[in-house]
Structures are given as structure tokens and as C-alpha cells.
Computed example of a mutant assay.
Amino acid sequence: MSNRKLNIAFFGSSLVSAYWNGAATYYRGIVRALSERGHNVTFYEPDAYDRQQNRDMPDPDWAEVVVYEATEAAVYQCLEQAAEADMVVKASGVGVFDELLEREVLKLQTEERLVVFWDVDAPATLDRVHHDPKDPFLELIPQYDLILTYGGGEPVVNAYEALGAKKCVPIYNALDTATHFPVEPEPRFACDLAFLGNRLPDREARVEEFFLKPAALQPESSFLIGGSGWGDKQMPDNVKYVGHVYTKDHNAFNCTPKAVLNISRESMARYGFSPATRVFEAAGAGACIITDYWEGIDFFFEPGQEILVARSGAEVAAILAELTEEKAKAIGEAAYTKVLSAHTYSHRAEQLETLLYTKIKQGKEALV
């Protein structure tokens, strides 16, 4: 196997801002872990959606960040620079010029250079192309050297391979131990159950079911919701809304409540094997997690011991009614132990590196 260190050009939504950008912590974890293994990543991100005005970190020393204007000319300039890389990654959901990038990165493909599509929302992408046979991305899928996904397990792999993908591999999100860890509780996040997530169309109905319904059923308990977009949402009186929660506050948000709630987006729950990044972040802070049910939970955590699972809002309310501080603490500690032993970004980067070297050795001999 080659041990060559790779220069990677990565086109994504944003590395330095988590504002309206749920993939930020996933990118950070993967890119930092790749850097620790000796690879060089240049991350290209557009100046869009006020993300640069709402940064939650400076440019890191483990990646070069190139912020480009949201113009076609700027995109082509970045593509020209990316031609120096050993591997070019186009992530889904960049937010501007996605179709252009998906098409143009393939022109950088050579015997020496891998071009990879990294889908951070595979269920949504697959639903989209299945519903629109004219979607331009359909004919591009078989051309990529590799499709990587944020999750989805066998259903996503099978769906992508049925569309002609050469190879599709999930690189699950994980815990970035450098940024998520136990801290002292913070009074402003004190409550019985907290949920953190932006208001999105395929999440809202599930938030109503798994969070707002239990709040209505448990009027004596206190609930807290964070994330962008919930300001005008009707909520029971025992729910407090704290707005966008910056990543520097995520540890306190996860550590302070008795329990934190994970709610999958509808498409991810349907495909299964798609744990949200926040599940690992919460586990890394030692939180007691209650999650909605999705297929594959036990692939990551043991239900009842390391995570609590609910199939409805009524079940969330019932779990909460019986949850003592002692039990919540024990479950949080068990989740913390599991995530450190099996689900850090170091584990994921090692998996990815092995995959890339195998791919290089099989079909890109000039790199070896």
C-alpha cells in the first residue's frame, strides 16, 4: 500500500462557519483528522448565506481555507487551482453553483487524480434524482471515481450503485475530541430535555412530534430548543427558545440538561444508518441522549444502555417521566466510553485513508 501523503482540494459549504451549515462540524472533524495523518487539505468555500459574517472559528492551521466570491468567474479560478491536487472532492450542498461544480470537477479527472463526490445529505440527493429523471447529476454519478456519503448504510450504497456509481462508501460522522468534550454545566441551558437543530422542511413535523408533543404532555418538565428559524413557531409555555447556538456553546448545551434529544430529518430516518453529527457530539460531552428510532442505531450505540430510543412523542414523554438524574448520568457515561473507543474522526480518517490508497493502487497506479 502506498503511504503517499495526498494534496486534497475540497469544495464544500463552509469549514469556518456553522451558520445555516449543519455539515460544518463533520467537515472539521474529517479534515483535521486527515491533516493529523499528514495529508494537506485546501477547502474552497463560497462567500454566501452570511456565513463569513457568522464565523465561529478563524482559519485553522490544519487546512488552507479559500473563500471565493459567489460568482462563476471565482468558481473557475478555484477549479484551476484545484488542478494541482492529487484528489478533488465536490461535496453536496455547497449552496452556490452546485451543478456547475459537479460537472466541472470531473474535467480534472486524470489517471493521476481522483475525483470524488462526497454526499453529506445522500437521502435528499437520492430522493431528488429519483423524482426527476432529467436531473443533470444523474448522468454524472457513474463518472466519479468514488462516492462517499455521510451515512445511510446499505440502503444508500445500493441506491447509488443502482444509479451506476463505481463505488459508494459511507464515512459516518463521529466525535471530534478536540472540540467536543465534557464541560461545566451552564445555567442558561438548564432543563429536563433540550433539542438543537435548525428549522428545516423535512425536520419540522418530526420536531412537533418528538419535542413539542412531549412538552405538551409533560407540563411540569422544562424544555429548551436551540437552532435557527424557530422564532415564530407556536410552542407550549414550558419550552424556552434560545436561538442559534454557536459551536463554542455546544458542549455546555449538551452537558447541562438532564437529557438531550436527537431528531432525525425525515429522509435520514427513512434510509436509516444516518446518525446526526450531534449524536456523537452529545455523547462526547457525556450527555444522556434520547433519539427517535431509525434503523441501524445499534450499529453505533446500545439502546437502553448507551442511548434511549423513542418511536413517538408519547414515548419521549414516558422516558422523561421515569428518567432519574442517576440513570441519565450512567447512560451519558456509557455513551462517552463508546464514542471514544469506536466513533472518533481519527477512526473515520483511518478508514478513508485505507479506502483511498486501495482505490489509488487499483486504478491510479501513477500515484503509487
Rank of each mutant, 00 (worst) to 15 (best):
I8G: 06
F10C: 11
V16H: 08
Y19E: 02
Y19Q: 01
I30R: 12
A33Q: 08
A33R: 10
L34W: 04
L34A: 02
R37K: 15
R37Q: 14
Y44A: 03
Y49N: 12
Q53D: 14
Q53C: 12
N54C: 02
N54I: 04
R55F: 06
D61Y: 11
V65T: 06
Y68S: 11
T71G: 01
V75F: 02
A82P: 02
A82M: 07
E84L: 11
E84Y: 13
K90D: 13
S92P: 00
V96H: 03
V105E: 06
L106Q: 09
K107A: 10
E111T: 04
E112C: 10
P123N: 00
P123Q: 01
T125V: 12
L126M: 03
L126Q: 09
H131S: 13
H131C: 11
H131T: 08
K134A: 14
F137G: 01
L140K: 05
I141W: 07
I141E: 03
D145R: 07
D145L: 06
I147M: 14
L148M: 04
G152H: 08
G152A: 04
E154T: 13
V157Q: 05
V157A: 03
G164H: 02
K167G: 12
C168L: 05
V169F: 01
I171G: 02
Y172K: 09
N173T: 15
D176E: 14
T179W: 13
E184A: 11
P185V: 01
R188F: 12
A190S: 14
C191K: 08
C191E: 00
N198M: 08
P201H: 11
D202A: 09
R203Q: 08
V207L: 03
L212M: 01
S221W: 10
S221Q: 14
S221E: 15
G226Y: 10
G229V: 00
W230A: 09
D232M: 09
Q234A: 15
N238Q: 02
N238F: 01
Y241P: 08
H244K: 15
H244M: 14
Y246H: 13
K248W: 14
N251F: 09
N251V: 05
E266N: 14
M268D: 13
A269E: 15
G272T: 04
V279S: 04
V279G: 02
F280A: 03
F280C: 03
A282I: 06
G284M: 03
A287H: 10
I290Q: 08
T291L: 06
D292Y: 03
W294Q: 13
E295F: 11
E295W: 10
D298V: 07
F300G: 00
G304N: 03
V309R: 00
S312T: 07
I319P: 02
A321L: 04
T324S: 05
E326Q: 09
E333I: 11
V339H: 05
V339S: 00
L340K: 15
A342C: 08
R348M: 07
L355P: 09
K359H: 12
L367E: 03
